[in-house]
């Protein structure tokens, strides 16, 4: 038997595999394919203070080894989440966290405060890194001062686990991580998507309605891995790694780079069972390498 349990501060995950916001709906979309209780946690779709229609179609373009998206945080708002969605998902036998986004600080605060009242939601992931909304979103996550401001404000009203999702579209991600740690973040997750773009040469038109969008998939993995490694050395709070993880080998690499847990994102679209396969694959790796506790692998990159 191997121990897969990890802790993000006080939040216990039965294994380090979570699913990334925006790629896993509210979990329900995957219930036909997997048993959600096999996962360490799920992070449901980005939720904002008010209903958002998101961006116009087209919102997606395939790229070599990945995809661009420009969904733009389409969601029905936090009140709808609390009333309609929460009752349906609250009894999942896994950690259900809500990704919270906003355009202004008051929106983040009000949304977080409402989710704070939901007994079965043990934490939120504060999204200060969405590249697809005109106001706010990524803007909060690209300077230390604005990242500190939003985390400080949310920390005052949100009493459970506060994970902050960082943007890779910065010069020095470690300094942003330290800034949010200083304001009381319980963990950081990284990376959100990289700002990218695609053009149809035949029509000379952009492939996304918003021209630019967020790049994800295995094409971003080396960048994500590097950033997780840098951040893990810079902060004391747990780091949750994501970005292009397609299989257990990728997941192990992030853990070795310093991630306490990992999130599966774009891979869910291609194989809706990939998250549980990765849990199994991590177990097999540990048995093969005679590692009895997953915690012994965190940050265990051999630099000698």
């Amino acid at each position: 038997m191997v121990n897969l349990e990890v802790k993000l501060k006080d939040l216990v995950l039965k294994n380090p595999v979570m699913t990334a916001s925006g790629t896993f709906g509210f979990g329900e979309e995957f219930a036909d394919f997997i048993d959600l209780s096999d996962l360490g946690g799920i992070i449901v779709k980005g939720t904002t203070r008010h209903h958002r229609e998101g961006n116009p179609y087209p919102r997606m373009a395939e790229t070599p080894s990945g995809m661009l998206n420009a969904v733009g945080l389409q969601n029905k708002g936090v009140e709808n989440f609390c009333q309609d969605i929460y009752p349906r998902i609250k009894d999942y036998q896994t950690n259900v966290m809500v990704n919270v986004s906003g355009s202004v600080i008051e929106d983040y605060v009000e949304t977080a405060a409402m989710i704070n009242e939901l007994e079965h939601i043990p934490g939120i992931e504060l999204n200060i890194s969405c590249p697809n909304v005109k106001e706010g979103g990524m803007a909060f996550g690209t300077s230390c001062a604005s990242a500190e401001e939003v985390v400080r404000a949310v920390r005052q009203v949100y009493k459970k686990h506060l994970m902050v999702k960082l943007s890779p579209n910065v010069t020095d991600i470690a300094s942003i991580a330290k800034a949010v740690e200083g304001q009381g973040a319980d963990s950081v997750s990284l990376i959100n998507t990289l700002l990218g773009m695609a053009i149809d040469a035949e029509t000379r038109k952009p492939l996304l309605s918003t021209v630019t969008g967020g790049l994800s998939g295995p094409c971003v993995k080396p960048v994500a891995l590097r950033m997780v490694w840098q951040v893990a050395q810079a902060v004391k709070i747990p780091v949750v790694g994501l970005g292009g993880i397609m299989n257990a080998k990728d997941a192990i690499e992030f853990i070795l780079a310093g991630a306490t847990a990992i999130q599966i994102g774009t891979a869910n679209f291609i194989d809706p069972q990939v998250s549980v396969k990765i849990v199994e694959g991590i177990k097999e790796y540990m048995i093969r390498h005679q590692v009895s506790d997953i915690n012994d692998l965190i940050g265990a990159i051999n630099l000698k």
């Binding site: 979309e29 995957f30 919102r59 997606m60 969904v71 869910n268 679209f269």
Partner: peptide
């Protein structure tokens, strides 16, 4: 055009 086909990605609206 869609990424997932089962309502998770919200790309094909």
């Amino acid at each position: 055009t869609m990424a997932c086909g089962f309502g998770a990605c919200l790309c094909c609206v």
